[in-house]
Design a protein around this nucleic acid. Structure first.
Lengths: 348, 348
DNA sequence: AATTAGCACTCGAATAATGAGAGTGCCAAT
DNA sequence: ATTGGCACTCTCATTATTCGAGTGCTAATT
């Protein structure tokens, strides 16, 4: 077990390392105000800490830097995050709340997160396929042009213009809409498409060309919505360029690629979705070789009705956890509450 | 004036440089099939070409590389672009056409462009403030929740949910909508807001809270649309990481920053908007110190009604112009034609 | 008059040699 | 248990050295 002095030294060492980014030597540590021991003593302690795997020396004659294990201990035991200033919290909350629909909320949150933290922000959005259709509307733009509006969970709308082969009357559109609204509302995307297929197979013969196109258009819209924007948003990649630890073009290229491929991050965020609160993944803990020099901080959120997502940041392993953690925490909580504001009424 | 042989050598030199990226020496050039002269002769010619400013030697004992002036001559006189394969053209066209509304079209075009060329793609979107409102619809989501749908130019729709303080009936909504549709359709965003303000000042007293909120919501939606997504899209930044010429973290950081700031690129694209066809900016021609090691290829497009935009790519000055130019050309033409398909009927 | 071979020269990139500085580990003294 | 002292190690920056590629110039050749 670590003695009080050992812990103190480890803590100081890590704090210094996080601040300066350079290996910390025994002399430097010994001169710190709260440390009343000589460099030699510090060296002895450091040798012990190294033996336990909390710190390591990059080479014989550099100071020590914390290992992932050391950082883990630091985050779990030593770190005391002061809460975000009320002012900043409030600013964040209002910017996020005012941004519009669910997509826009996550967009804004993501942008703010990457700007504020100086890290790469990631948002895993709730699975659209589980969203329930709450309204369908057809808007007649011109004789042969119709705008399909699908509303999901009462807080997200998807548009799709469709072109008709024949003129259609407002009346016909009205009837189509009310048919859709009685038959499909409350269903998930998948269910809605199934139902549509089912109902249509009999009716299709009776429908004229315009009607068919409308149905087709609605199906397209459903499909577009389903496959639409990938469920993962990554923003602020360029922030990575500023960190010396990652200042290697090859590595940067690989990291940037991993952001586009999505798989890597997705598997990481999936882990986080289960955990009910904030999580910190340090280096290897991310489960990816590539992210070894990085840390990831995540926090899940949900928009009610079991639609759950995750947001977080990715940055160099040496990041100001003290500052970043509260930001992720607060942002997730804001998004969570904003998205829950209008819990859809469960139908059927 | 350049003699035939001089031109040939310059052309060969540039082609080799574009392919290999290394300075080209007299020996290498002399051994080329179509060049029947000795290295010494080549050296004499090269000395002349250097005197004229077409090529330069990075240092005494390297070969020569083309200057911007040289590349300019190459692009203007020597370059023969073979048209894009019909197959690829067709693929591009269908992917772009099927992507949805105007925003989505430009989005897809931008993505494809960056993927296909391996460069950074940029799209300056037509000024939203000039778009004309073609339809307004209010969709009642629940007693106190309404979705405002604004349709612009018959091909773009903007959604906005609004929250009411008091219940509202479908009937009331209907009346509001028809009021909007008679008073505001055909106006630009700015005009619509003016008109709204005007008309409302008198009426406001007669409206109940719900109505007022709707008007407010519509105003918000107009404003959101106006300020909405910045008019500039930049995609595929990460592509820059692969080029040796730009393999300097500081420079990359600056470039990435310039992509976020938008001003730099905007002023460049503004130049291109005037030109009626494809344009190539080489190095300094971009007008930006920062883009000195880069080239930019642009092509304007318009969606009718004087709504004009520009798309293009930015990459290292040493890029396969032969391959890239046709891609930008074709993509711009596809976007142009897709966006023009539904030319809005000019109103009033 | 144009082309070419020959040769001295320059410069950059790679490799090796050198020295200074930081920090350690360990031993003996406190 | 702690500390001062000291030899030792390793990195980083600086300086030399070498090698090769490619040039520019001159004189010879066609």
């Amino acid at each position: 077990m670590l003695k009080a002095r050992d812990e103190l030294l480890l803590k100081k060492l890590i704090e210094l390392y996080l601040k300066e980014g350079k290996p910390v030597g025994s002399r430097t540590l010994s001169k710190l105000p709260d440390v009343g021991v000589s460099p030699a003593t510090v060296r002895n302690v450091m040798a012990d800490l190294e033996g336990l795997g909390f710190i390591r020396a990059p080479h014989t004659s550099a100071g020590r830097i914390p290992t992932s294990k050391g950082l883990r201990l630091y985050v779990d035991r030593f770190l005391i995050c002061q809460p975000l200033s009320a002012e900043l919290t409030h600013q964040l909350a209002s910017k996020i709340a005012e941004s519009g629909d669910a997509q826009a909320v996550m967009d804004t949150a993501s942008r703010l997160l990457s700007e504020l933290t100086g890290m790469v922000s990631v948002v895993l959005m709730p699975d659209r396929r589980q969203e329930r259709l709450s309204h369908v509307e057809f808007i007649r733009i011109s004789d042969r042009r119709v705008l399909v509006v699908l509303v999901f969970n009462e807080q997200e709308a998807e548009n799709r213009f469709i072109e008709l082969d024949a003129d259609i009357s407002s009346d016909q559109l009205q009837r189509m809409a009310s048919f859709f609204n009685t038959e499909l509302v409350g269903l998930t995307l998948h269910e809605a498409r199934e139902r549509l297929l089912q109902k249509m197979s009999g009716l299709r013969a009776q429908l004229n060309g315009g009607m068919l196109r409308i149905v087709q258009g609605a199906e397209d819209a459903l499909e577009a919505h389903e496959q639409g924007a990938s469920p993962l948003k990554v923003k602020g990649e360029k922030n990575l360029l500023q960190y010396d630890e990652l200042a290697d073009i090859q590595q940067l290229k690989q990291l940037f690629n991993s952001f586009e491929e999505h798989q890597a991050i997705l598997s990481l965020l999936d882990k986080s979705i289960a955990a009910k609160g904030l999580q910190v993944f340090i280096g290897r803990e991310t489960g990816l070789e590539l992210y070894e020099p990085c840390s990831v901080i995540t926090h899940p959120f949900d928009m009610g009705d079991e639609l759950v997502g995750v947001l977080g940041v990715l940055g160099p392993r040496r990041m100001p956890y003290e500052r970043i953690i509260p930001m992720v925490d607060v942002t997730a909580k804001i998004v969570d509450s904003v998205l829950k504001k209008h819990v859809p009424i469960p139908i059927e």
